[in-house]
Design a protein around this nucleic acid. Structure first.
Lengths: 238, 238
DNA sequence: GCATAGAATGACGTATACATTAAAAAATAC
DNA sequence: GTATTTTTTAATGTATACGTCATTCTATGC
């Protein structure tokens, strides 16, 4: 009896831990964010609360809550009676976000260099760097982009500044669409890999200033490239 | 009959002095933020949705929405069934936020220097600088603090980067309590005024690097002062 | 035709109802 | 007395109801 109940409880606990207990609001937030970032909800489009609610098969309440969160994250704009608008990124927006990102990731690189990195942290970054190189060799741009994102994510994590990590992630989410779009348009990012290696070397050596300098240059170059590509290909908004 | 009751309830609809009708959600957000920043809702305290709803004389719905916004802004933490917790700032939090603020305001100063400032922008900053000096002469710390906030606000606005402005404002809101607290503990901020003048001079001259350098030094000094004061006076959390 | 007023529509903001479920309390076993 | 189970409580998450009001449509006057 007791055994039976105990095992019941355990299975229940496991279920809870696996995260089945997610609220509709959280589900709505996650799904909508995903759809925005992958352009399944196109930039510039507007959607009524009731549309989204029907699509997600829930009532308006959790949808409303989700849109508030996404609005705070800069992904949508809530315009009463005109729908929830997926914010498009114009050149100006890209410039604003990249300036901030460059700055914050520069700080992250410098902070990371000031810390003593744990072996597993170093290993994680090395692994991603290798993945990026492998991906480049086999001309697999999707894999490269995925590894690139993980590199930048690891980097800000190394800063040890939780708020910095969250802020950088939020801004990266905002420019995700633009990166996706230019992935096929740009030349193979050979320079990027070299930059990443160099930044990481500087971090391991504890040379914060150098890590920051290289990273800033890296990001600045990437921004220029992306904005030029978007302009060349007539994407005045993404 | 029902109509009568209904119209009574409707008359509760809020109007601001400007005569503009704002939503209950906006009202809740504004009032709660105000109360958090002024310590009328003390850091570390927890409050149930229903408490806040009763206090604000509205239903739980707009309160819930407000707390989501405030959570996204980093002012509270929503812990289901344990209440909405006003986030306290520990030394570590202050360090994280000030690092980010220093960085972002440094970027703002540099960006501002790169722009051509309009006469009214210059005038506005000059006015605030004078206010700060006047306040110092008459030892009016509250007035000084208020002008100081306006100076930093104007500064990021001069950057021309809207997102940067919003981000800096959000972080400043988070450390507002700590600044208030140390206002009476710290020596008269003579150096601050000199720093401000110097930063602004560099901006007017279009010397971005110098503006950034001075501003960064200014913020770094301020952070050190505040954290030391808090530690000295036994505030391990604010 | 054009402009304006009035009516119709329907999206939103808010209150409320209610099921769920975590936390607290009580009861039971050890 | 402590640990475990059961019961109770009540805070939350979500759906729903509904009044309001921005927007759209229609009708009327010119």
């Amino acid at each position: 009896m007791t055994l039976h109940k105990t095992s019941d409880m355990i299975s229940k606990t496991v279920e809870t831990e696996t995260g089945k207990n997610i609220s509709q609001t959280q589900r709505a937030t996650a799904i909508l964010r995903e759809m925005i970032m992958n352009n399944r909800l196109p930039a510039g489009s507007s959607h009524l609360e009731s549309e989204l609610a029907e699509m997600l098969d829930m009532s308006r309440t959790p949808v409303r809550e989700a849109t508030l969160v996404l609005e705070a994250q800069g992904l949508v704009e809530v315009r009463p009676r005109r729908g929830i608008r997926i914010l498009p990124l114009a050149a100006q927006d890209m410039a604003e976000i990249y300036q901030i990102l460059t700055e914050l990731e520069g700080l992250a690189a410098e902070s990371a260099a000031r810390r003593d990195l744990a072996p597993d942290e170093i290993y994680a970054v090395e692994t991603v760097l290798e993945e990026m190189e492998t991906a480049l060799e086999s001309d697999d741009r999707e894999a490269w982009a995925s590894a690139d994102e993980r590199f930048h994510d690891l980097l800000v994590n190394l800063s040890g500044n939780r708020r910095l990590t969250m802020a950088v992630n939020a801004y990266n989410d905002q420019v995700h669409r633009a990166r996706l779009l230019t992935l096929r348009l740009r030349p193979l990012p050979l320079q990027s890999n070299a930059d990443h290696r160099e930044v990481f070397e500087a971090i391991k050596e504890g040379d914060g200033k150098r890590a920051r300098r290289i990273h800033t240059a890296h990001r600045t170059r990437a921004m220029k490239l992306i904005t030029e590509l978007l302009a060349q290909h007539g994407f005045h908004q993404v």
